[in-house]
Design a protein around this nucleic acid. Structure first.
Length: 403
DNA sequence: CCTCCACAGGAAGCGCAGGAGT
DNA sequence: ACTCCTGCGCTTCCTGTGGAGG
C-alpha cells in the first residue's frame, strides 16, 4: 500500500498542543496593555445602560494593535451586563470589507433583525424604512460597529453615516450609535466635514506595541498553544523584536511563532528556536504580499507582472547609465511589456493615460515607488522601482493566471 | 535658444450596468 | 416592462514640463 503521509503527520510529535490559540483569529481572554483603552471605550458606551444614546466613536490604529479585539471585548461585556438588567441593547458587528456600500450595510442590519425573512430584491427605501421601524418599535439602543470603515466606497460613507445618525432625529426612545474602526490615517481627512464631526465625536488612537509588550503578549499565548518548554526564550524575543521593528503589530508576531512552530514540526525538531523564527519571517512576508496581490484587479496584476518581469530581465540592468539604481524602469518600457502580457493572457489593453492611473494606484498600495526622471534620461518620464522581490512576485502572479 | 522627445495629468466625453421612477 | 438617470471605467484630446541635442 502506498504511504499515506497523513498518518505520519497525525502521529508525529508536534510542538503544538493547540494551534488555534496562536492563530491571528484567536481572541485572547485577557488583553494586556489595553486596559486604558478598554476603560475609556466602556465609559463612552456606558450611556446605553441608562437607555441614553452614546456618542459615535472613531478608533484609529495600525494593523494588529488590538482595535477589533478590544471593541469586541467591550461589546461582549456590555451585552452581558444589559442582558442581566434586560435592557434593549442591540449590537451588530460589520466588517466593511465585505459590505462596501450604504445599502449593503443597511441590508445586513435588517437581515440581522429578521433572520428568517429574505429581503433580496426589496427597494432601498423599503430597507431603510424596515430598519427605522424595527428600532422605533422595540425602542432599541442600537450600536453598529463598522470595522475597516475606510473600505466603504468614498461617496457612500458620508451618506451612510448621515443616514444612521439621522435616524436619531426620528426616534423618541431608542438610539443609533456608530463605532468606526480604521487603520487608514488618511481616511478621516477624506470625510465630509459634517460626517467627520458626527462620526468622530469621541476618538481613540491605539498605539503600536513595543518589543517588550509584544514579548509579554507572546509569553501569555505560548503556554496555551505550545507544549511546555518547547519554545526557546530566544525565539519569543526574536519574534517580538522583528515585528516591533517592522510595525509593532501583534498579528505578525503571532504569525511568526505559528509558522516557526510549523517549521519545527516539518523538520521534526523538538524545539522552536530563534532560527525557526528567522526562517518563518520570509514566509510570513510572502504570505502578506500574496494576499495583497490576490485582491488586486486583473489589470493591476498585469501591470505589476510587467514591472516584475521587466526588473528580472538583464536588459534593464545594463541600460541605465552611471549612478542610477540598476533596478529602475521607465514607464514607457513597462507599458510595452504590459501590452505584450495582455495579448499573451488575452486581456484588454488600456490606454497609456489609464495605465498611468494604474501606476499611481500601485504606488499608493506600496507595491512600487516612483520618481520623476532626473539627469541622464531624456524627457520627462517616471522611473519605477519594485518594492518587493521581483522573482517571487512574478511567480505568484503567473500562477494566478494559469489556474 | 529652439525644437523634439517622452512623458504627466487635466478636461470632456463615451458606453455600459444597474438602480429609480412611472 | 419601459424609459430615464447616474456613476464608473475608460478613451481621446490637449496642454504642460524638463532634459537632450542641434
Amino acid at each position: 500500500m502506498a504511504e499515506n503521509i497523513f498518518y505520519e503527520l497525525l502521529n508525529q510529535d508536534s510542538v503544538f498542543i493547540d494551534k488555534t490559540k496562536i492563530s491571528p483569529h484567536y481572541t485572547p481572554v485577557s488583553l494586556p496593555f489595553r486596559n486604558q483603552e478598554i476603560k475609556t471605550l466602556s465609559i463612552w458606551l456606558s450611556p446605553v445602560l441608562k437607555k441614553a444614546k452614546p456618542h459615535n466613536i472613531f478608533i484609529y490604529g495600525k494593523v494588529g494593535t488590538g482595535k477589533t479585539t478590544v471593541v469586541k471585548h467591550v461589546i461582549d461585556n456590555l451585552l452581558s451586563c444589559s442582558k442581566e438588567h434586560s435592557l434593549p441593547l442591540y449590537t451588530i458587528y460589520i466588517n466593511c470589507r465585505n459590505f462596501q456600500t450604504k445599502n449593503a450595510v443597511l441590508f445586513y442590519c435588517v437581515q440581522h433583525f429578521f433572520p428568517n425573512k429574505n429581503f433580496v430584491g426589496y427597494s432601498k427605501s423599503f430597507i431603510y424604512d424596515k430598519f427605522l421601524t424595527y428600532i422605533k418599535e422595540k425602542e432599541l439602543n442600537f450600536i453598529v460597529v463598522l470595522d475597516e470603515v475606510d473600505k466603504i466606497k468614498e461617496r457612500e460613507i458620508d451618506d451612510l453615516i448621515y443616514s444612521l445618525t439621522r435616524t436619531n432625529d426620528e426616534l423618541v426612545f431608542g438610539s443609533v450609535s456608530v463605532v468606526g474602526i480604521s487603520n487608514n490615517l488618511f481616511f478621516k481627512s477624506k470625510l465630509d466635514l459634517r460626517t467627520k464631526s458626527s462620526l468622530c465625536q469621541q476618538e481613540a488612537v491605539f498605539p503600536p506595541y513595543d518589543a517588550e509588550q509584544l514579548k509579554e503578549i507572546l509569553k501569555q499565548r505560548v503556554p496555551l498553544a505550545f507544549k511546555a518548554e518547547v519554545v526557546d526564550v530566544s525565539a519569543i524575543n526574536a519574534a517580538a523584536a522583528l515585528s516591533a521593528k517592522e510595525s509593532g503589530d501583534a498579528r505578525t508576531a503571532v504569525m511568526l511563532l505559528l509558522r516557526a512552530g510549523e517549521l519545527a514540526d516539518l523538520n521534526k525538531e523538538k524545539r522552536v528556536t530563534d532560527q525557526d523564527v528567522l526562517k518563518a519571517k520570509a514566509k510570513v512576508e510572502s504570505e502578506i504580499i500574496k494576499s495583497m496581490v490576490l485582491t488586486l484587479p486583473v489589470q493591476l496584476q498585469l501591470v505589476l507582472l510587467a514591472i516584475s518581469e521587466k526588473s528580472l530581465s538583464p536588459k534593464a540592468i545594463l541600460k541605465i547609465t552611471g549612478q542610477l539604481d540598476s533596478n529602475v524602469l521607465y514607464s514607457g518600457e513597462v507599458y510595452e511589456k504590459y501590452e505584450e502580457l495582455c495579448k499573451k493572457y488575452s486581456e484588454k489593453v488600456v490606454s497609456t493615460r489609464w495605465f498611468r492611473e494604474y501606476i499611481n494606484e500601485l504606488e499608493t498600495y506600496g507595491f512600487i515607488t516612483t520618481t520623476v526622471s532626473g539627469k541622464g534620461v531624456k524627457g520627462n518620464t517616471t522611473l519605477i522601482k519594485l518594492g518587493f522581490d521581483a522573482k517571487n512576485l512574478a511567480n505568484m502572479i503567473v500562477k494566478e493566471f494559469s489556474e
